[in-house]
Design a protein around this nucleic acid. Structure first.
Lengths: 300, 300
DNA sequence: CCTCCCTATCGGAGAAGCCGATGGCATGAT
DNA sequence: ATCATGCCATCGGCTTCTCCGATAGGGAGG
């Protein structure tokens, strides 16, 4: 049994085909085919169903899948441990968290941690659903996400809270209205992100509460673009407060004092069991995140 | 990375030399030397210190050791899972437990368990210290031992209790004495096992309580030999009651009613964490052992 | 029916695995 | 000191495996 064979198998399953796996791995197609044949001869059981449109795991292959992942993980962990490197902690986060919050936490972690609690940290930015996929498939060790989504049955911890706020540029018509009513809000145009994004979800919930008449001025996939548009007075946006913390403090955006609608958000850390040497650093990091919540994170 | 290389490394460490490992594995000495060189080239770090009297792991090799074991374990588990075999549960036990108690428990387990709680069970008989060694090194998944010995920091459960009894053949002079006093006992000659055995420990404790004048008639390493000697009237023996249960019920041995000295024994199950698919069967087995304690096991 | 994409197979070149034999090196006995 | 012993690395050889490019088969979709 060879890690190459397991990696080949895993890549075939993940890419859905032998040819694509071969290209990804830098082998000839025939070589991967050979490797798989060797693996199946070794195991005594076919693990892949080859069809003319692709290759999918058999029942035995599905049983093999988690083992292949664990073995390859263990192989990486082994190499780090043997060569005396620090353990690797692969975390994932939503873009907003990765942009506005993780950098400070991670620098604090780098400076504060010591002994067995240090680790090399990689951060992967992705959507909530993809983050959970990667966590479940073992490509990530831990994720930080804004709550919601299906239940997670692994270990987790609440890291902090935030609320959703309605922001505009200070020059925006709504910015001077006190107090602000829902009727005023309905006049304005909104900047929103694409469906599936946490911010879009907030907006949709807000829309359900307020009524169906909210006007969408622009849809963008990039959080930074959306913020810049708001700063330039192109409309209002409904966002977690921490994600516009710097704009609020610099005055580029103002928070409207609307009583209705603000949604409470929970920032949660979720991780895998059996992390090995990365477990201690992760726990230390999670504790740090809980202590680290800046003033702007407090629930008001 | 290849399982052969890891197996070679592990065998070298366990046998203390490359030549011995090669012989054990069925390779030529030069082949194992090659395998190790390949492994070290792959890892980029020397993992073995070769000397003219043997080979021992370097610091990096000691870090490699637990990973090698886990990987090889995982490889075996994988093969079982993929080929649809039941998980393997490797248990170890003291000879007395393996002889007098486990057979019935295991047949009950075989007949009663179902679904994911079945497993192929292997039983290894060994001394308490070796059992704990093999458990810690991952060659056994669980052990059943009579308590005592150093603390164990893994999961464990008390499976039952027993007491130590003084037995002789019914024809033995002591058998007719009622009530029996310590003075009577000191007249008799004892059959004992070798140092290190649980029975010998009972005897030694008894000796400390009674006084230093106990007479040893014979020392034997075999529990069966000791029992047959007792049955044939060659002396008295101090043994856990369950280990002579059949002889007591058949009348081949009688239990002397000595008030002093009986020691309480705890039968304990200890197992590893991270058993994988063998965990559910083990828990089921442990529960079964707790329910299964026959009447003769009750503490009186 | 033809085309396209995916995969298996084949033959050859190169690499790796394995072996037996040899030699170096430290230890321990003579 | 010297020799013998046991351990390991190295070398040349044979075999086997690995990988590749090219080719062929076989279903899906136009």
């Amino acid at each position: 049994m060879d890690t190459r064979q397991l990696r080949a198998f895993l890549t075939v399953v993940e890419t859905g085909g032998i040819s694509s796996a071969a290209e990804l791995l830098g082998y000839a197609q025939s070589s991967v085919s050979d490797q798989l044949r060797t693996l199946e001869r070794d195991l005594g059981v076919p693990v892949l169903n080859r069809t003319s449109i692709g290759t999918v795991p058999t029942e035995a292959g599905q049983r093999l899948l988690p083992y292949a992942r664990r073995l390859l993980d263990l192989d990486n962990e082994l190499r780090r441990s043997v060569t005396g490197q620090r353990p690797l902690l692969r975390i994932g986060a939503l873009q907003s968290l990765a942009d506005e919050w993780l950098p400070e936490v991670l620098t604090a972690f780098d400076h504060g941690a010591a002994g067995p609690e240090t680790a090399d940290v990689t951060v992967t930015v992705s959507s909530r659903t993809r983050l959970m996929e990667e966590l479940n498939e073992g490509r990530l060790d831990a994720v930080f996400t804004l709550d919601s989504g299906p239940k997670y049955d692994g270990p987790s911890a609440v890291v902090g809270y935030d609320r959703v706020v309605l922001v505009t540029a200070p020059t925006h018509p709504l910015a001077g209205v006190h107090p602000l009513t829902l009727a005023d809000v309905k006049q304005s145009e909104f900047l929103v992100t694409e469906i599936g994004c946490i911010y879009r979800q907030c907006f949709d919930e807000f829309g359900r509460d307020v009524g169906p008449s909210l006007k969408i001025a622009m849809i963008t996939g990039s959080l930074n673009a959306l913020r810049r548009l708001a700063v330039n007075g192109r409309g209002a946006a409904l966002l977690p407060r921490f994600s516009v913390a710097s704009e609020l403090s610099s005055g580029d955006l103002v928070m409207l004092d609307l009583k209705e609608g603000p949604v409470r958000l929970t920032v949660e850390a979720r991780w895998r069991e059996g992390l090995g040497p990365a477990e201690a650093p992760l726990r230390s990091l999670v504790e740090l995140t809980q202590k680290f919540s800046p003033a702007s994170w407090a629930m008001t």
